[in-house]
Write a protein that binds this DNA or RNA. Structure first.
Lengths: 243, 243
DNA sequence: GCCATTTAAATGCCAGACAATTAAATAACT
DNA sequence: AGTTATTTAATTGTCTGGCATTTAAATGGC
């Protein structure tokens, strides 16, 4: 393997790309051991620190894992949904906060995606999913709950709804949209009356889901979306007037 | 800043996490310059190579960019949708290939998400989106087209549909679902008759979109999903019989 | 005042070394 | 023979120190 030292990209970036491509193309398969750092240095004709930088890049994307010791080394990592979740959420969160995405746009995306899961979830949700949702509703009605905890519970509730569709790909894609909204939601402080309204809609949603009533679920979600949007609008309005 | 040398995690991973948290929390803002590698070495009380490994981890996630020269250094990167797309697609592709996700499951997720965009797109699509879709349909009907090119055009067509919803967050989330399907779609070689059928459905979809007919778009998408699923099923069946 | 040169600061890269970890090979002991 | 303790070898983790390269700003010459 050879690397172009005249490219404008870092050597470590080129090496990382080379290995990444090998993983994506299937030349390197899951759990396969990569050559040792010393061997990679020879193959790519670079120093060990440079190889290490390349490997760290791959590790940051969970594409490899490393093990020390005699039989250690870098191994192609089986990328699991569990591992991919946090990265997806981090990226989505930063995208929202760094690109001045309006609350409305983010909210629309989130509820659009979530409503698409509703029919499947109404069909396939297990008792487990329902139990989780009921438990979260109960938590949300506790008086002493902080706004952060309320929002976290809200996220857990909606994730149970999405997971109810029984499609891991769908759950993964939705995770980013739902979780990344949390910081934005936290900016809206909920009054007791607002919470009661949200809990009421959550209950309606759970009831419809329990009855396998897809239309009911969709209606409840639409209600949540418009209520949330209006709430945000009024909060923003108040803040603007104060300032 | 101090790092725990007795943790089981690598120093570079801990440092990367520390800086990443600072970015997420807003302590470090976009375009802000991080301390130089030498300064970071001092602050975290580690060597420069270790700091560099940490920075490469962050660079792999597009959280920072580096610049050489007198006024150079590492800067907090404004994560753009354009930058996040490829990562999202790589991750989604690997998740599908490494986790034995069935074609059916992936296909269901993809069309479920895409159908959720249909109403918005029927409402908001511009002439530009329509033109792209018509152009891709035209390309798809060229006789000499390879299967790969046909699939690539298919992806472009569907991305135009999604982009028509005019919501960047939605487009981003959908990119992974749509693009990650391409390698799976490539495994199904399309006969001329299959292509004609797909083009027919694409045309119906574009027509409905042009008429702002949300229901028509949804019907066409549902048709595409069932046709694709059945096609895949029969292809798999044939392969099993051969073997 | 403008252009060429120098300088300084920073990242990019390398060589060599040592520490820590781990599994396997070996030796010692029962 | 079998089990346990020790040694050994391979590998990653980390450090030191250095040089090359790039870039913008400071300096100097015209």
């Amino acid at each position: 393997m050879k690397i172009d030292p005249n490219s404008n990209a870092d050597l470590s970036a080129q090496i990382a790309k080379s290995i990444r491509d090998a993983i994506i193309s299937g030349d390197l398969i899951v759990d396969q051991r990569l050559p040792s750092e010393a061997e990679l240095s020879d193959q790519f004709d670079v120093s060990r620190p440079t190889v290490r930088e390349a490997l760290k890049r791959l590790a940051a994307q969970s594409l490899i894992r490393t093990q020390r010791g005699a039989t250690g080394g870098a191994f192609v990592n089986k990328l699991s949904f569990e591992e991919a979740y946090p990265q997806q959420i981090t990226t989505s969160t930063l995208l929202l906060s760094m690109n001045a995405v309006s609350f409305e746009t983010a909210c629309e995306a989130r509820y659009t995606l979530e409503r698409s899961c509703a029919p499947l979830s109404a069909l396939r949700r297990t008792a487990d999913h329902l139990a989780t949702m009921r438990a979260e509703i109960h938590r949300q009605s506790q008086p002493g709950l902080t706004d952060e905890a309320f929002c976290a519970s809200d996220v857990a509730f909606h994730r149970a709804l999405v997971d109810g569709a029984g499609n891991p790909v769908l759950s993964y894609q939705l995770a980013g949209a739902v979780e990344a909204m949390q910081p934005l939601m936290n900016m809206i402080t909920f009054s007791a009356r607002d919470r009661a309204k949200i809990i009421e809609l959550h209950t309606a949603l759970a009831d419809a889901l329990e009855a396998n009533n897809a239309t009911g679920v969709d209606t409840a979600l639409a209600g949540l979306e418009s209520y949330t949007t209006n709430l945000a609008k009024s909060v923003m309005e108040k803040r603007k007037n104060k300032a």
